[in-house]
Design a protein around this nucleic acid. Structure first.
Lengths: 337, 337
DNA sequence: TTGTACGCGTTATCAG
DNA sequence: CTGATAACGCGTACAA
């Protein structure tokens, strides 16, 4: 039994517009009628139809979310928790736009418009996965997560990938390491590039020579870590420390090292990335870089909300710090050379 | 520059109703006008406004999703993948109803109605978390995931928790074990109860005595597994096998066993639940029960779609089989007793 | 302070 | 086969 604003008006003995004014907290309503209307609203459990409201206002208190398919990011759940928290604060529901298709005619912008979303969150994509230019040129408020795209109404938020890796290198050099290898992610992914860049900067800042032998481009999996370490062991001067782009690949590195008779952290230091749940419990516990996805999710919505509500604001670009979690997989360099 | 159906009508030199008929594939339109309209639609990149459509049709091609807060289920991502796949097939977008609040006045039903969703998915809740009765009594098509609630328009889908545990017990008795302990989940959770029930059934079917000493009620964490094993070791006749309600707690059991000088699987057999990514790589690799969350997500949407489209259909209740993944953490019982 | 009437973009009915 | 026109439920100038 669905109630409309008209039913409420009748029950309260006022006009529809008065009800509307009460609901939307307009000033020019006498306290007496306001109270009466409010009582009826409560009694009849009236909730305004957001579809109708969306039609007339051209906005729906809804944020659109585009997600890449096959998402396996370990900390996606945290992101969601961050989203949820701020979604509540700012009063939006989230519509997951699942009807993406990958043919070139598909248009994110049209999809958004047809749904009348107030703003859009985009997560998990690479630069050329979809036609993001159209999105950037549109007037639709947009926040990219982990992709550095900017438009007049579009900003982005991401972890500080570069600094993460510089920190990691610096931590290892502080332990005396000078032969530091790097298990990279996809060469052409946004985060992959930045982390590699951070590694190179770190190397440079510590006056260490860069050797391409010490870099392996993998795919974040355990297997790629394993393969990487096998390759590093072939080097004329094998590394004494390895930085990885994911915890899973760090685990692969440790396994390959163990097979070669090397123990961590005595013979080899290893740093991971992500801080997945298991990392606390591995043997040894993994030293790793933790991304603050809860904050990223939270800030993405908060910033988007600002963008939506402020017409000429500069598009937000946020870089969220990471944290090096020091556990047991790194040790002082014993390489006498 | 947003186009409406009126713009299209003007450009094509026909009436709005004709355009509407073409868009919605109505029969009574001549091929010639249909073609002309379609051309204009394509040229002008017209997409009908789903808000307006939703208003008049009373349905929005949208499914609502209620999620519990702080969801950390490792396989939620799989569920999402399953959802996404079938969402695409059946043409819905998913609206994540984040504006839940926990005061008693909050009504799921009203929230749904205000958004005009066609159906609802509910995941991660316990029976008394919210007022689900109202939902069950409403005419809103609903699928509960992992919660066995049924209404005239509401069904559920879940893994076969009972059978999973019976399988596990049966597998262990097949290996000669007769002292089989159980690390349960929350005592009052839906899945927790069923898994415990399955364990008891399995015990009974194998004519083993049930001993409350052999059951520990934990919370799915590694720590609770650790604590459980410590307790089991205090028994006058410690178990030779342990079944756990999560992989993490299985890892805790193994750790506690190792501390007591027991090696797995020689001295103790351990079975987990979930098959998280890491289980393949632990030492020994974990024998565990895998839930098919991809299928659960997929079927949830498919069944809901059926429910929506068929007025008087019986509410679907699906129990999805699990799979015992046999790896290296179980061995033949050596207990000579 | 309150109410009337129109419009948001679409679909459905019914007359032509 | 095509086109007016009335809904759908709400917000808001404007009139009272």
């Amino acid at each position: 039994m669905v109630r409309t604003i008209r039913d409420i008006a009748k029950s309260a003995g006022v006009s529809v517009s008065t009800v509307s004014k009460v609901i939307n907290n307009y000033p020019n309503v006498s306290d007496k009628t306001k109270e009466r209307v409010l009582r009826v609203v409560r009694e009849e459990q009236f909730v305004p139809n957001s579809t109708a409201r969306g039609l007339v206002k051209g906005s729906t208190q809804t944020l659109g979310l585009f997600l890449t398919t096959g998402l396996t990011h370990p900390y996606f759940v945290q992101l969601l928790a961050g989203l949820e928290e701020s979604l509540k604060e700012s009063g939006y529901d989230l519509i997951y736009l699942a009807q993406i298709d990958w043919n070139p005619e598909y248009s994110l912008v049209r999809h958004c418009r047809s749904r009348n979303v107030d703003g859009v969150l985009i997560f998990g994509f690479q630069r050329n996965d979809l036609n993001f230019d159209e999105m950037l040129q549109s007037e639709i408020p947009t926040m990219f997560i982990d992709l550095d795209l900017i438009g007049s109404r579009a900003g982005f938020i991401t972890s500080d990938n570069v600094d993460s890796m510089r920190q990691a290198v610096s931590y290892l050099t502080g332990l005396g390491h000078r032969k530091i290898a790097f298990v990279a992610g996809y060469q052409d992914s946004y985060v992959g590039k930045l982390r590699f860049e951070g590694y190179r900067q770190g190397i440079q800042e510590s006056d260490l020579p860069y050797s391409s032998e010490y870099t392996f481009f993998g795919d974040f999996t355990r297997d790629s870590g394993y393969a990487a370490m096998k390759q590093f062991l072939e080097c004329s001067a094998p590394p004494t420390a390895v930085i990885c782009c994911s915890d899973m690949s760090a685990l692969g590195v440790i396994e390959a090292a163990a097979e070669a008779g090397l123990t961590v952290p005595q013979d080899l230091s290893v740093i991971g990335f992500d801080d997945i749940e298991i990392s606390r419990y591995t043997n040894p516990p993994l030293t790793t870089i933790r991304q603050d996805f809860q904050t990223i999710g939270r800030q993405a919505v908060l910033q988007l909300d600002q963008l939506i509500r402020t017409p000429h604001i500069a598009p937000p670009t946020l870089i969220i710090p990471t944290e090096l979690i020091i556990r047991g997989s790194c040790g002082i360099c014993r390489d006498s050379e």
